[in-house]
């Protein structure tokens, strides 16, 4: 992720998400909105800011999203826990980059993060959390594409 060299278990996160993707996305009633891709795709983010965006998005998911995604389905809950704990572990590694100043945010990225938070706050919390979780593959694709 730019100057920040961090090893993230993407395979495990991807496997956990794939296992529940259909279930989670079927719970998203608002099909015409996106949290991560509105108004601009994540793929428009410049590469030097990758670490900053990744760090902020992991914080967004850990602090705001996962806790509002509890379901009645034990299997889904277990996979969400798996992803959440992987994000927590990854965020800690990214935090070390932050401390070493290898994770700076440019103006455009700061704007993108602000936009994502506004998209999120614009919905009721459960819908926003489920939608964000359902869009996890957008984040994973962007992270793997920009490796």
């Amino acid at each position: 992720l730019g100057a920040c060299r961090v090893s993230l278990s993407m395979t495990e996160i991807r496997a956990g998400f794939t296992a529940i993707k259909a279930n989670i996305q079927s719970r998203d009633p608002i099909r015409t909105l996106s949290i991560l891709s509105h108004p601009q795709s994540l793929h428009k983010v410049k590469s030097p800011d990758r670490c900053c965006i990744t760090h902020h998005l992991f914080t967004f998911y850990v602090d705001k999203v996962f806790k509002h995604c509890r379901t009645e389905d034990s299997f889904v809950n277990r996979k969400i826990s798996s992803i959440a704990n992987s994000f927590l572990s990854a965020r800690r590694k990214l935090g070390q980059c932050h401390e070493q100043n290898n994770c700076a945010c440019g103006e455009k990225s700061t704007e993108k993060i602000k936009q994502i938070l506004e998209n999120y706050e614009g919905l009721n919390v459960t819908s926003a959390a489920m939608k964000s979780l359902g869009e996890l593959d957008i984040l994973l694709d962007w992270m793997e594409k920009s490796r």
Binding site: G16, K67, S74, F75, R78, S82, S86
Partner: peptide, 30 residues
Amino acid sequence: HANGSWIPISECSFTAATVCNITEDISASV
């Protein structure tokens, strides 16, 4: 981040065994 919640492992709910394979759920380095 989730109020100290606990998550059941369905394969090891109401089991008569005294061992449980938790590999699937221990899937992060925390």
